[in-house]
Amino acid sequence: MASSVTAFAAGKKIAAGEPGEVAGTIAKLLAEHDGTILVFEDETGRVSDLDYRATKASSAGRPKLGVQAREVTLLPRHWEWLSSRPGGASAELRRLVEAARKAGKSDRERQDAAYRFMQAACGDLPGYEEALRALYAQRQRDFRAIVDHWPPDYARYIASLLGTEPAQTGDDS
């Protein structure tokens, strides 16, 4: 299962985080409003199939944060170094893992993640096909010129999948 997901409804981000938490948010929203909700895995940009009709019971850990107890075997010098880091061992391990995840993705993997999201969520938006051509031709200026006219939450999410910052359009409503 995906480690984190983001949900959109009508071009707006409605929830992000651990799948169980996002599923709970979606269930509450659907109880109040009807509509199409798209959920994407943040790592790959793939559509995620969350079952938001029922919530799951979680095990030990801090379930609201998506934390589950695991065992890590390190040498005493490793534990000593980790414990000396700001926030302690757990916080430093999370930072190291996130940095490795971000550093480990190639440009093509980031482009493919953005493509998968765009294919599912943006296909009817103006300039969609030209945006895809600009994405794979690495014409960042042309790509941003198109995407920055799409719903702001979509533009921000695409930028996060690509590992870039979106241009500031001044329209964050």
Rank of each mutant, 00 (worst) to 15 (best):
M1C: 09
M1G: 11
A2P: 15
S3N: 10
T6M: 13
T6F: 03
A9D: 01
G11Y: 03
G11D: 05
K12Y: 07
K12I: 04
K13E: 14
K13Q: 15
A15G: 10
A15T: 03
A16R: 07
A16G: 06
E18T: 00
E18A: 07
P19N: 09
A23L: 06
T25K: 13
A27Y: 01
K28F: 05
L30R: 15
E32S: 12
H33I: 04
G35T: 03
G35S: 05
I37G: 06
L38S: 10
L38N: 04
L38M: 10
F40N: 02
E41I: 06
D42K: 14
T44F: 02
T44R: 03
G45H: 05
G45L: 02
G45T: 03
R46M: 12
D49I: 01
D51C: 01
Y52D: 06
A54Y: 09
A57E: 09
S58P: 01
S58W: 05
S58I: 00
S58R: 14
S59A: 15
A60V: 09
G61W: 04
R62D: 13
K64L: 13
K64Q: 11
K64M: 07
L65Y: 09
L65F: 10
Q68V: 12
Q68Y: 04
E71R: 15
L75A: 15
W81A: 13
S83L: 09
G87A: 08
A89L: 02
A89R: 01
E92N: 06
E92R: 13
L93C: 07
L93R: 05
R94E: 14
R95E: 14
R95V: 07
L96K: 08
V97R: 11
E98F: 02
A99P: 00
A100F: 10
A100E: 15
A100N: 11
A100K: 13
A100D: 14
K102Q: 14
K102W: 01
K102S: 13
A103T: 10
S106M: 07
R108C: 00
E109H: 03
E109W: 00
Q111Y: 06
Q111D: 14
A114G: 10
F117A: 04
Q119I: 07
C122E: 09
G123D: 08
G123F: 14
L125D: 04
L125M: 13
P126Q: 11
G127D: 08
Y128K: 06
E129Y: 04
E129H: 12
A131G: 06
L132K: 14
R133G: 13
L135T: 01
L135V: 02
A137W: 00
A137L: 11
Q138K: 14
Q138C: 02
R139Q: 14
R139A: 13
R141I: 08
D142F: 01
F143S: 04
F143Q: 04
R144G: 01
R144K: 10
A145W: 00
I146V: 15
I146W: 03
V147R: 00
V147T: 11
P151Y: 03
P152R: 15
D153C: 08
D153L: 08
A155T: 10
Y157D: 02
I158P: 05
A159E: 00
A159G: 04
S160D: 10
L161N: 05
L162F: 04
L162N: 05
G163P: 07
E165V: 11
Q168F: 03
G170C: 12
D171G: 08
D171S: 12
D172I: 02
D172S: 08
S173L: 12
